[in-house]
Amino acid sequence: MAINKFRKDMLVTALIITIAIFLIGFYLGYLLDNLRIDDASQLLKKSELDSESFEISERFFYLFTKGECSFDRLRLNELGKQLADMGRTLTVYDNKKLTRRQSYNDLKRKYFISELKFYNMNKELDDKCGKKNSIILFFYNVEGNEESLRQGYVLDILGKEYNDLSILSFDKDFDDYSIKSLTSFYGVEKAPTIIINYENKYQGFVSEGELRAVLNENKTN
């Protein structure tokens, strides 16, 4: 009755099975990372193509209508919202990354560059045709910055409420030349910092009420 049914190979077998299950988990995770990167790349590619297509058609009309500003503002807003959605997706995927860190960083870089391109295009059109839409640059910090997080919530809700508002978010400390140029141009020293309509700079958390007031004022001007 007191038979010892233990054999050392049971410990080894358990170890082998555990390692095998872990490896399967890693492999599935790797496959999922690939899917995420493919998904984000496709979204980014679509966003870039849409943006390019918009820019080309706008230029075409501008050239062939001898300087008339006949571009579709709604479509421009849509491009801004698309970029914001893309940013959210990328943030979610970025939090899950374990492998392919470089690929994620490249995607983020590409995304920030797309945002900057959009910003430039917006500025160019506003200068040419007179400003009608609002645009916000939001510089945040990813590392445990509560104020950035809170500012993000506020901007999210405003972005949903104001149809003609485009919000472009940038990781203040991201290692890219274009972002560094932007932060140095605007003198961004801390996160969160927001720039409203190219020139109004606010450092630190800005409440929903304050932002609403600024946006409404810009609308009436």
């Binding site: 988990g25 599935l28 998904d39 979610v92 374990l98 809700i157 949903k160």
Partner: peptide, 22 residues
């Protein structure tokens, strides 16, 4: 207002498989 019902694809892609499979 910020809550949206996620699609199946979103749910699958949001799972951290490497971490939670085991």
């Amino acid at each position: 207002d910020l809550f949206k019902i996620p699609t199946i694809k979103q749910v699958v892609l949001e799972i951290n498989f490497k971490l939670f499979f085991s």
